[in-house]
């Protein structure tokens, strides 16, 4: 990402620091083991928030709290409050299905359904009743693949299996699939860790473009990636949020020694 784009994003987020999601005193327990300790973290609208930290620090756990994917783990318990547009997503009245349609997710390993590319994209909108006619489906497939920068590569084989694509293409297909249901927030759990540098560059470029329309939270192990794609960075260590701030400041002049050591590669 170019310098000026970063500055623009920074100034934009300063002018209009809209909080899309806000975590207040979020603690997570797996059985008796506590994985997150009172995390307070805001996610700003139309920006990329990177979560960094060594393995097992709780960043993925926090990410999975944001669309309640942790609900699928029986022994997992979440306390505290997480809001989406000032609405507590752990409130009893919240429909998890609707929440996950608003907060989409892209996983570490590309996981397209073993169906055609077309079916992969159309599935989400169809179960949410967003499309019904053939024309609407065609349109959403084209639009989603366009946005994911994949359309030109796959337009001649939309009805071939999505699992036949290359790793990078599969991951962009998964992003397209997430976009298809028109989410407001997209969570990405180390989306590039299984990809080669060229595919990674493409996905990073895509993330930067998506920021215009979506709010993105990304977990990454790569400092460079966090520096390249994010506007704000949050550093986790042993289940605690160590520091959070504008990416530029985090990488040049962090407040804590821990962050500085981690970023410069002295531990982690």
């Amino acid at each position: 990402m170019s310098e000026s784009a970063t500055e623009k994003a920074l100034s934009a987020s300063m002018e209009r620091p809209e909080i899309k999601m806000r975590g207040t005193n979020v603690s997570v327990f797996y059985g008796a083991k506590q994985a997150l300790y009172d995390v307070n973290l805001d996610v700003r609208e139309n920006s990329v928030t990177a979560l960094i930290g060594p393995s097992g620090c709780g960043k993925s756990t926090f990410l999975r709290c944001l669309n309640r994917m942790n609900d699928t783990i029986d022994i997992c318990r979440v306390t505290g409050e997480i809001t989406l547009d000032d609405e507590n997503i752990y409130a009893p009245a919240i429909d998890v299905v609707e929440l996950r349609a608003r907060v989409g997710m892209v996983f570490q390993k590309p996981n397209p359904f073993p169906k055609s590319i077309y079916e992969n994209i159309v599935y989400g909108p169809r179960i949410h009743g967003q499309v019904s006619t053939r024309a609407e489906m065609d349109e959403i497939v084209e639009r989603s693949l366009m946005k994911a920068g994949l359309f030109n590569e796959v337009k001649d084989r939309l009805h071939e299996p999505g699992t036949g694509l290359s790793g990078g293409q599969q991951q962009r297909l998964c992003i397209a699939r997430a976009i298809a249901v028109s989410p407001e927030v997209i969570l990405m759990d180390e989306p590039c860790s299984a990809l080669d540098p060229i595919a990674t560059a493409k996905v990073e470029e895509l993330i930067d473009e998506l920021r215009v329309n979506y709010t993105i939270v990304i977990v990454t192990h790569s400092m460079q990636q966090a520096a390249r794609v994010s506007q704000r960075t949050a550093m986790f260590h042993l289940g605690n949020l160590v520091e959070e701030g504008p990416t530029e400041k985090m990488f040049t002049n962090p407040d804590t020694k821990l962050t500085q050591d981690y970023i410069t590669g002295r531990f982690g």
Binding site: T72, V97, C174, R177
Partner: peptide, 21 residues
């Protein structure tokens, strides 16, 4: 693989939909 289940839930399928679809 559980990743298929994750993928379905991640785009807002209910548990039943993930299982039956």
């Amino acid at each position: 693989p559980p990743s298929i289940n994750d993928a379905a839930l991640g785009i807002g399928a209910s548990k039943m939909q993930a299982i039956f679809h």
